[in-house]
């Protein structure tokens, strides 16, 4: 009797979410990007179709951020201009998308006006043709104003806007519904809240294929295993037919990796740890590649060399291992 190899049969697949809109679709992007659609565990090509490769968005901010030198030196000539910064990320560093973080809006920080924030979004839309992710500063009150204005000003562009959270999802969901954008549903490393938030957002009539999950992550050495197991459970739920866990997943890799001591501590403090810059790049790249294995669809990253390493890894993982 021939050996019969048993394969997992999955009942369902991850939702597909398409970001951006071309001229024909009412936007100004040169192309759209679709994530998700996986009918198997990450890169188990032999068990189901994985129609879209994971993508990398590079982070741009509306004001010059207080980043470590290893990062700053890659963007030193453009960091004051979000448009040129985004352009550099796409043209020189191969970013699939741009992730614009409007930290300048923070009332505790630069407290830039709503108009300035909208202008930054428009500047980036002008400068690059890739789809755009826009996230507020984290101050609920200010974000409400800023993101509503951004949603309206960029109507038709099919942005990915964030963040919606369990206590604060209604105004952003409404704005995304009215102006036809996608939404980031962010939960605090908690799969129950992750699922509940997706339910709450879909109850406002947002289709599940316009939601992207941000499960919150920890970087390598800072709780990445919690994120890993939550993402793994999310994927298993999606494959078993749990629609409220079936959205693609994004990970804030750059933010988490570059705030670790290991990524930034100078060699003088830890002579045994090796070159600071190389260490930071690897910290970000390894965090990203681990999360790819857990089921990440969209990685939000910072260092061009880390991006290059991760994209190379994605290419290899997307070579079919079907048998």
């Amino acid at each position: 009797m021939p050996l019969q190899l048993l394969k997992e049969k999955n009942r369902a697949a991850v939702q597909k979410v398409t970001l951006g809109a071309t001229k024909e679709e009412g936007g100004t992007r040169t192309h759209t990007i679709t994530i998700g659609g996986d009918a198997a565990l990450p890169f188990h090509h032999f068990e189901g179709e994985i129609p879209h490769r994971p993508v990398v968005a590079m982070e741009v901010q509306d004001i010059e951020p207080d980043w470590p030198d290893a990062l700053k030196k890659c963007f030193v000539d453009v960091m004051k201009e979000p448009g040129r910064w985004a352009e550099k990320c796409v043209k020189e560093y191969g970013a699939d998308l741009i992730y614009l973080k409007l930290d300048g809006a923070d009332p505790e920080g630069a407290n830039r006006s709503v108009e300035d924030c909208v202008a930054a979004v428009k500047e980036v839309l002008q400068a690059v043709g890739v789809p755009l992710i826009v996230v507020g500063c984290g101050d609920a009150e200010k974000d409400k104003e800023v993101l509503e204005a951004v949603a309206e000003a960029a109507a038709g562009e099919n942005l990915l806007l964030g963040n919606a959270e369990q206590d604060n999802y209604k105004s952003l969901t409404a704005a995304c519904l009215v102006h036809k954008h996608n939404i980031i549903a962010r939960s605090p490393l908690d799969i129950n809240i992750c699922k509940q938030l997706n339910i709450l957002i879909t109850e406002m009539n947002m289709p599940p294929n316009r939601i992207v999950i941000d499960p919150s992550i920890g970087s390598l050495g800072y709780g990445i295993e919690y994120a890993y197991s939550i993402m793994e459970r999310t994927r298993l739920g999606a494959l078993q037919g749990d629609k409220m866990l079936s959205m693609p997943v994004l990970c804030t890799v750059g933010y988490e990796a570059w705030r670790t001591k290991e990524a930034v501590a100078p060699v003088s403090d830890f002579p045994g740890w090796g070159d600071t810059e190389e260490r930071g790049i690897l910290w970000e790249a390894v965090t990203a590649t681990a999360l790819l294995q857990a089921g990440a669809h969209l990685l939000l990253m910072r260092h061009p060399k880390a991006v290059a390493l991760v994209k190379e890894n994605i290419e290899k993982l997307m070579v079919s291992n079907a048998y």
Binding site: I191, N192, I193, K195, Q196, R233, G241, D242, K243, M244
Partner: peptide
Amino acid sequence: VYCDSFVKVFKSQ
């Protein structure tokens, strides 16, 4: 997976 709306979700999925 548990969520607060577990009864509702069970009936709708």
